[in-house]
């Protein structure tokens, strides 16, 4: 996983702190175990950070290689009697280039449009989703960073449907069945398009069409026809995203979809996860 720029800045501060400790020793041999230990740990931490940075291409690969060589040498120096100046000789190039060539590119990457869209998506939904739904939302956010906007919409809808299924399960299937009976008794659109399929298990609920759940939802959760129509539009967008066609949603469309899902599903239909 890519380290954050905040983590790298903390690492940079440790480097600076160690360097200022070494300055105090001038060209004398470093004998204090905690300084030697910190240098060893810094080198180890750098190699871990570099390994995480390398696949992302955010930081120049050649630069990482050079830093690796210096850090491995630094680690080797901790195994023998070494002067502070020798340690500093290895640390100085890293210190002088670290912020500009490692931290700054990472900060810019974190603020790139796709990453910002990812943060925005998570912010829109952060306060209204459960841990189960968060799995879908995280996947939607990943899709957004890869510019797979249709896939992101599908994952968002999956989270919304997970909410509806969980709430129905919590309310009891009998409540759903009685709401279904009241729905199918109405002979006008959209009620007349609902299949009369009572359920007694989660597996059966999972087989029910999303459209039917949205219509029955008017009985179950007492939302009005306008809310139903908004939900139906969200379902339509999801269907457009999952079937061949000319729909080409952009990142802002995905964010708008997330906002509407939040307003019409997650903030309206409440689910209380049971404590295990």
């Amino acid at each position: 996983m890519l380290p954050s720029s905040d983590e790298l800045e903390a690492f940079h501060n440790r480097l600076k702190h160690t360097d200022s400790n070494l300055i105090k020793s001038g060209s004398k041999e470093v004998k204090r175990a905690e300084i030697i230990g910190e240098i060893y740990q810094l080198a180890r931490d750098w190699l871990r950070i570099a390994a995480a940075l390398r696949p992302s291409d955010v930081v120049d690969g050649e630069l990482l290689k050079n830093f690796d060589v210096q850090m491995i040498e630094l680690q080797r120096l901790t195994e023998s009697r070494t002067r502070a100046s020798a340690y500093r000789k290895m640390l100085t190039p890293l210190l002088s280039e670290f912020f500009e060539w490692v931290i700054t590119p990472l900060i810019r990457f974190e603020a790139s449009p796709a990453q910002v869209a990812r943060h925005d998506l998570l912010n829109i939904l952060a306060k209204v989703i459960t841990p189960t739904e968060a799995d879908y939302i995280d996947e939607a956010a990943q899709c957004l960073t890869l510019r797979c906007h249709r896939a992101a919409i599908i994952m968002l809808w999956s989270a919304a449907i997970a909410r509806l299924h969980n709430v129905i399960e919590q309310m009891s299937f009998a409540s759903y069945n009685s709401a279904l009976a009241a729905t199918v008794a109405k002979k006008v659109t959209p009620f007349k398009h609902v299949y009369n399929t009572p359920i007694s298990s989660l597996a059966e609920l999972q087989k029910i069409r999303d459209f039917d759940i949205l219509v029955v939802g008017m009985e179950l959760w007492k939302y009005d026809i306008q809310t139903f129509e908004e939900l139906e539009r969200l379902l339509g967008t999801r269907n457009n995203a999952s079937h061949p066609g000319m729909s080409k949603p952009n990142a802002l469309d995905v964010l708008q979809y997330a906002r509407k899902s939040s307003d019409f599903v997650f903030s309206k239909i409440h689910f209380t996860p049971t404590v295990q």
Partner: peptide
């Protein structure tokens, strides 16, 4: 809302 990373950049 201001994204922390975006503010830094």
């Amino acid at each position: 809302i201001a994204d922390w990373q975006e503010v830094k950049a």
